[in-house]
Design a binder for these strands. Structure first.
Length: 576
RNA sequence: UGGGGCGUCGUCAAGUGGCAAGACACAGGGUUUUGAUCCCUGUAUUCAGAGGUUCGAAUCCUCUCGCCCCAGCCA
């Protein structure tokens, strides 16, 4: 599946044309400009990949620049987290840039605007400013302070900088057009007084520039050629251009907008994610159910699979809601290649092989990857008592069930063919143990007489295994679009998004379990250690993603979740 | 009802006047000691709708409809 978008999306087309026409001397410079006010999620990964890949493709560079012009919301922890996420994705950015590094220059630009009569200090209150701005359908009114002299503006702005005024007393605004149909052009605010300590500049400043003023100038100062951002900034482009046109700047980058990513059954907005975290609906920003990069990493997502996903979904201006299945498909694709196979039983059912010698333990050879010889083999032990998966036994199996049932023979992977001869139940009628016989002639799993056995199931040696807890994850929300209507997000939460299994049995593996080292539990899925919850001797394992499961699909088709019709089975079959 | 954007398969997405790519999903089949992987095969007479221009339209023109964004001293 090496489906690199060879044709290229519309942004690539624009950049390519610019390079061919020798615009910007054929140079390409992009930037990824996060505000350090939260953690990155997969939506940011799309922007990161886009910006870095465009730079790579055209032999340019991409800056990581923190858009840190609002000290009220920004923190060093976010800066650290963002840096680590970008590195994890595998992109090189050298030393990060900060909008705050340009505060002095930005101040000079503001003065330049004042001198040219293009900016003024406005002393309306916040409420008044809003009233004067008008509405979507009515034009705004000029501020009574709009015609202050250059000298007065200069004096006031200097005093704003010197901390002589309180927050809200004065703001610096661009003088554009209060009747513009574009709200962004109705004398937008350039600077406000904010007596907050900044994570990087400390208390040096008590006025801070607004996004529209900061962003375009930062781009220009860095020699950015293509400033890629999301669709909601389309309306800001005229202001981006106005600012750069009015000021004497190094260059005039081209802003190009693309659609943000949405994925079904999850949310991709910092605000909403924050709410889930703060209200304890999930266990922190790195909860493996979250689409945050930290959460996904902890869950076992590889950076390669995320990059692949971003590559496959493309870039356009259309609102989209991408199927979570596509993300998972990219993950499985990558993990299938790299994950060593191992056996583990999640919901154990004891099996006693009645004709197997009591004290014998045999060593059997198992492949670490069925298609990749180079990944080698390992030795696993086998004895009279083993664990198998509860789901691999049915007392009254339906037609196409190839697994264990009374009188049925299956292959224990890499071991022997066994036949179920007895079923032991407790007083409630729950099956608690299976008695089987094995065929000693079938060591390794092949029958010398050529008889074919359709089913192969996994198992774990009962007296030589590791007890673990395993966390299974499902989609965070019940609804495909949790943001639909104004309904409360929380009502939409899937109560079964996390399932903790306490009594899992893992094959005693040679390699130690490690965070971010994903292995495949055969027939179950991909799993990795949850370093955050594991303690010495008490591992906790995350299920990264399940395997594709044709049987589950078939079973569901033949026995669809009951509507109103009453089911006529005595017991609920226990498949997933 | 001001302004800005967007409508191509269930979901993404190519396509820019000359036979509607590809991926995921789905359906069928083959291989298989993972019901995994892998491999075949099928799946849009039609591009939001209606008119028009043209030998020829998803592509050009007109109108209509639907969806998203904008009234933070957030980014």
């Amino acid at each position: 599946m090496e489906a690199e978008n060879s044709k290229g999306h519309f942004i690539e087309t624009i950049i390519k044309e610019d390079v061919e026409n020798n615009k910007n001397d054929g140079q390409v410079v992009t930037r990824f400009p996060p505000e350090p006010n939260g953690y990155l999620h997969i939506g940011h990964a799309k922007s990161i990949c886009l910006n870095f890949k465009m730079a790579q493709k055209f032999n340019g560079r991409c800056n990581l620049r923190f858009d840190d012009s609002n000290p009220a919301k920004e923190k060093q922890v976010y800066i650290d987290s963002i840096e680590s996420a970008v590195k994890w994705l595998g992109f090189e950015y050298g030393t990060p840039f900060y909008a705050s590094d340009y505060f002095d220059r930005l101040y000079e630009f503001a003065v330049e605007l004042i001198q040219k009569g293009k900016a003024y200090v406005c002393s309306l209150s916040a409420d008044q400013t809003r009233e004067y701005r008008g509405t979507l359908t009515e034009p705004g009114k000029n501020s009574p302070y709009r015609d202050r002299s250059v000298e007065e503006n200069q004096d006031l702005f200097t005093r704003m900088k010197n901390g002589e005024f309180d927050e809200g007393e004065h703001i610096l605004r661009a003088k554009i057009d209060m009747s513009s149909p574009n709200m962004n052009l109705r004398d937008p605010i350039l600077y406000r007084v904010k007596k907050a300590s900044h994570p990087r500049t400390g208390d040096k400043w008590c006025i801070y520039p607004m996004y529209d003023f900061t962003h375009c100038l930062s781009d220009s100062l860095e020699g950015v050629t293509h400033s890629l951002c999301s669709l909601e900034f389309e309306d800001h482009r005229p202001l981006y251009d106005w600012t750069l046109d009015e000021l004497d700047t190094p260059c005039h980058p081209q802003q190009i907008e693309f659609a943000r990513m949405n994925i079904n059954y999850t949310v991709l907005s910092k605000r909403k994610l924050q709410r889930l975290v703060e209200k304890d609906h999930v266990q922190g920003w790195d909860d493996p159910r979250l689409p945050t990069l930290e959460g996904m990493r902890r869950r076992g997502y590889t950076s390669e699979s995320i990059k692949k996903f971003c590559d496959i979904i493309g870039v356009s201006k259309k609102d989209s809601r991408i199927d979570m299945g596509l993300l998972e498909s990219c993950l499985r694709d990558d993990l299938n290649e790299k994950a060593p196979r191992v056996m583990a039983v999640l919901k154990p059912l004891k099996v006693t092989i009645i004709n197997y010698p009591d004290d014998l333990t045999e060593e059997l050879m198992a492949k670490n990857h069925p298609q990749k010889e180079e990944m080698g083999t390992r030795s696993i032990t086998f004895s009279k008592e083993i664990w198998v998966e509860q789901d691999d036994f049915m007392e009254d199996p339906p037609k196409k069930f190839f697994r264990l049932g009374p009188g049925r023979e299956v292959r224990l992977r890499y071991a022997y063919l066994v036949t179920c001869t007895d079923v032991i139940k407790d007083e409630d009628g729950t099956v608690i143990e299976l008695i089987c016989t094995y065929d000693p002639e079938t060591k390794g799993g092949n029958a010398p007489d050529g008889r074919k056995v359709k089913g192969t199931i996994h198992w774990v040696n009962a007296n030589d295994c590791i007890d673990t807890k395993v966390k299974l994850y499902d989609r965070l929300f019940k609804d495909e679009n949790p943001e639909k209507d104004k309904r409360d997000l929380v009502e939409n939460l899937n109560p079964d998004s996390l399932q903790l299994l306490e009594n899992c049995k893992l094959e005693k593996c040679r390699g130690e379990l490690e965070a971010e080292h994903v292995v495949q539990f055969e027939r179950l899925g991909y799993f990795c250690l949850d370093a955050k919850e594991s303690t010495k001797g008490a591992p906790v394992i995350n299920r990264t993603v399940t395997l594709r499961d044709a049987w589950a699909k078939l079973a569901k088709k033949n026995n669809p979740p009951r509507k109103n019709k009453q089911p006529k089975r005595k017991k609920r079959p226990q498949q997933k």
